[in-house]
C-alpha cells in the first residue's frame, strides 16, 4: 500500500463523512486497484448521493473496468446535477468516441472545451473527432459498415497528422514532430537514417521538457521562451512551444546549417499552430 493511500485511508477512517474518499478512490485508480476504488466510490456515494465528484469518480472507475455504459450513466447523473462539469463532458466524449459514436462525442467534447477553456486535451480530442467526422461524412453510407468507415477515417486522420510537415520538410534529410504536454505524438514523424520510426521514443524522452524549460526561464527572469536548439554529434534538434501545452520539434543532420534548422522550426511551428487551431 502506498504512503498516499495509507494516509488517505486513515483520514477517511477518522472522518467517514468527509469527501476524502474521492482522493482515495483516485489514488487507488492510479495504483491500478479498480476493485478497491469501486468499493470506495460506492461507499462514498452512500453518504454523498448527489455529489458530482463522487459520481465522476465512479464513472472513471467504470471506465477502468471497461464498463463503458455504466460510466456514461454516472456522468449523466453528474451533468444532471452540474451541467457545466467539464470532466463529465470530457469523459463522456472519450467513451462515446471509443464506441464510435462520433457525433455525440463531438457534442460532449465541445461542451468540455467550452466549460474549461484551459483543457488543451479536450480541445485536441475535439479537433481529432471533427476531422474524423469530416472523413466519415464524406464516405458513401452504403460503401462500408459503420465500423469500417470509422477505421478508415481514423487511418486517414492519422495519415493527415503524419504528413503535416511534409511540405515544410521537402526532400531534405530533416524531420519534425508535434508533441502534446505528455510527450505523445500529435503529428509528424521521426524516421532515422536506417528507416526506423522513433517518434514515440523521442516524444517519451521529451515528456515534460516544455515545463522544464519554462521553469528555467522563470528562475532566470528571461520571460517566455521562444526557441531551444540542442546540438549533438549527429543531429541538430530545435524546439518551440506551440499553443498552451504542445511542443514542435524539428531535427536535421548535423551537416545542415543551424540557420536552416531554425527556419524549418519556424515553418513547422506556424503549420502546427494552424493545424491545432483550424476548425475542421
Amino acid at each position: 500500500m502506498s504512503d498516499e493511500i495509507r494516509r488517505l485511508s486513515e483520514e477517511l477512517a477518522r472522518e467517514p463523512s468527509s469527501l476524502v474518499f474521492v482522493q482515495l478512490g483516485e489514488a487507488l485508480r492510479r495504483g491500478r486497484q479498480p476493485d478497491l476504488a469501486l468499493q470506495v466510490a460506492r461507499r462514498g456515494l452512500e453518504r454523498h448521493p448527489h455529489h458530482p465528484a463522487a459520481h465522476d469518480l465512479l464513472a472513471r472507475v467504470h471506465v477502468d473496468r471497461g464498463e463503458l455504459q455504466d460510466a456514461l450513466d454516472e456522468w449523466s447523473v453528474v451533468l444532471a446535477v452540474a451541467p457545466e462539469h467539464a470532466g463529465a463532458h470530457r469523459g463522456m466524449g472519450y467513451v462515446l468516441f471509443k464506441q464510435g459514436r462520433l457525433e455525440e462525442a463531438e457534442q460532449q467534447l465541445a461542451a468540455a472545451a467550452r466549460a474549461d477553456g484551459t483543457d488543451a486535451g479536450a480541445g485536441t480530442a475535439l479537433r481529432m473527432v471533427r476531422r474524423m467526422l469530416r472523413y466519415t461524412s464524406s464516405a458513401p453510407v452504403q460503401a462500408a459498415p459503420a465500423g469500417e468507415r470509422m477505421a478508415d477515417a481514423q487511418q486517414r486522420v492519422q495519415e493527415e497528422a503524419r504528413c503535416l510537415f511534409a511540405e515544410a520538410l521537402g526532400d531534405a534529410d530533416q524531420t519534425a514532430l508535434l508533441l502534446d504536454g505528455h510527450g505523445l505524438v500529435l503529428a509528424g514523424a521521426y524516421v532515422t537514417s536506417d528507416g526506423a520510426e522513433v517518434a514515440q521514443e523521442i516524444g517519451a524522452a521529451l515528456a515534460g521538457a516544455r515545463e522544464e524549460i519554462t521553469r528555467v526561464t522563470q528562475h532566470l527572469h528571461l520571460g517566455a521562451w521562444t526557441t531551444l536548439v540542442a546540438e549533438t554529434s549527429v543531429a541538430t534538434i530545435a524546439m518551440a512551444p506551440v499553443m498552451t501545452d504542445s511542443l514542435v520539434l524539428a531535427a536535421a543532420a548535423r551537416s545542415v546549417p543551424l540557420g536552416l534548422v531554425r527556419r524549418l522550426l519556424d515553418r513547422c511551428a506556424r503549420r502546427a499552430t494552424a493545424w491545432l487551431t483550424e476548425d475542421p
Binding site: E201, A204, T217, L222, A224, T232, S233, V234, A235, I237
Partner: peptide
Amino acid sequence: ALFRGLRRSAEAAALSSVTYLQLEAERGFL
C-alpha cells in the same frame, strides 16, 4: 539541470550526447 535533462533525453532517443544548447527567450539567451 537543463543541460543534464536534455543530454539524457537526447541519449534516450539515440541522438547521441548534447554538446551545445541555446535557449532563446523574450529577455535574453542561455
